[in-house]
């Protein structure tokens, strides 16, 4: 007896039907463009020159590798940014997470947490714009505030090469410390109450409790949080464009900022494609690490 839905009851057809829309989206908007990108990275192609693409082999890659002030300084700047951002945010997030741990019954907890989590859902471009307003040397609130504490000279935070990088980093920390707080709270929430009570009965010191119980249960969520931050801060762009757009000089030129400039302001498509391919390799490496940690966690949960 053939039922009307018998076609859908065939497993392979069903798998195909379910996956088809996502695959279609990806082939059109991702696979084809990525292949295009790979191909283009071997061409010399600028949109401004009006010349057709010219095959140049590995020249783009060679240029990127051997250019002084090129990818190496961008990458080192980016990795310092990532390292500082992730460690500062993790430390602060841990502190705040532990601070908020016992606040289940706090009056207005939901509003307080909303205020705390606000920075991470704000439009990065808007955030960057209004921090520029706050950092402004003449009418900015921060300089006025420092004036109250005895600073005499106003500081041009975003225009001064010594401060710009750290000023941007500070805003990133302001935005993403709440995220690490969220992750810390989640990690602490995954610690079973019973084990803590048992530890209390066994008279373990708080340090032993922390090391033996809290760390044991919470470490994976915390690690996931740090990995997510690592990957996200590697991509930082939206925040920087309105604040400094890579300047002053190249002080805040992270990889994403440089690629954005070369591709969409100078329209060096061939060179940018090669640069993007290199970033793609880095991203794939980071994704692998992420999935590896995730699998470790899964395996542990199962056993």
């Amino acid at each position: 007896m053939a039922q009307p839905s018998s076609l859908l009851n065939d497993r392979r057809t069903l798998v195909f039907v379910l996956l088809a829309p996502v695959l279609a989206f990806f082939i059109v908007f991702n696979t084809i463009p990525t292949l295009w990108l790979l191909g283009l990275s071997f061409y010399n192609y600028s949109l401004t020159s009006g010349m057709p693409p010219e095959f140049v082999g590995f020249t783009n890659f060679v240029n990127i590798f051997f250019n002084r002030n090129g990818i190496w300084s961008d990458l080192s700047r980016t990795f310092i940014f990532v390292a500082c951002a992730v460690s500062l945010q993790t430390l602060l997030g841990l502190m705040l997470g532990f601070l908020f741990w016992g606040s289940r019954n706090m009056p207005g907890r939901r509003i307080a947490l909303t205020l705390l989590f606000t920075p991470m859902v704000l439009t990065p471009v808007a955030t960057g714009t209004f921090w520029r307003f706050i950092y402004d040397p003449t009418f900015g609130a921060l300089n006025a505030l420092m004036g109250l504490f005895g600073a005499t000279e106003p500081i041009n935070f975003l225009g001064d090469p010594t401060f710009a990088y750290w000023a941007v980093l500070a805003v990133d920390c302001w935005m993403w410390t709440p995220f690490m707080t969220l992750m810390t709270l989640a990690a602490l929430g995954s610690v079973p109450k019973a084990e803590l009570e048992a530890a209390e009965v066994d008279r373990l010191t708080w340090f032993e409790q922390l090391r033996l119980i809290v760390w044991h249960h919470g470490k994976f969520i915390l690690m996931l949080g740090m990995l997510l931050r690592t990957i996200d801060s590697f991509k930082t762009l939206d925040l920087i464009i309105p604040m400094t757009n890579g300047g002053p000089g190249q002080q805040t030129r992270l990889v994403a900022v440089e690629l954005n400039k070369q591709a969409f302001q100078s329209f060096n498509m061939g060179w940018s494609s090669a640069y993007a391919v290199l970033l793609l390799l880095i991203s794939i490496a980071m994704t692998s690490v992420f999935i590896h940690v995730l699998n470790l966690r899964r395996r542990r949960e199962r056993s």
Binding site: L37, N260, A263, F264, S272, L279, T287
Partner: peptide, 16 residues
């Protein structure tokens, strides 16, 4: 991995 890639690298070929 698509979400791990910096924005300009994702959008560059799509732009073309």
């Amino acid at each position: 991995s698509i979400r791990m890639l910096p924005g300009p690298a994702v959008i560059l070929p799509v732009f073309l």
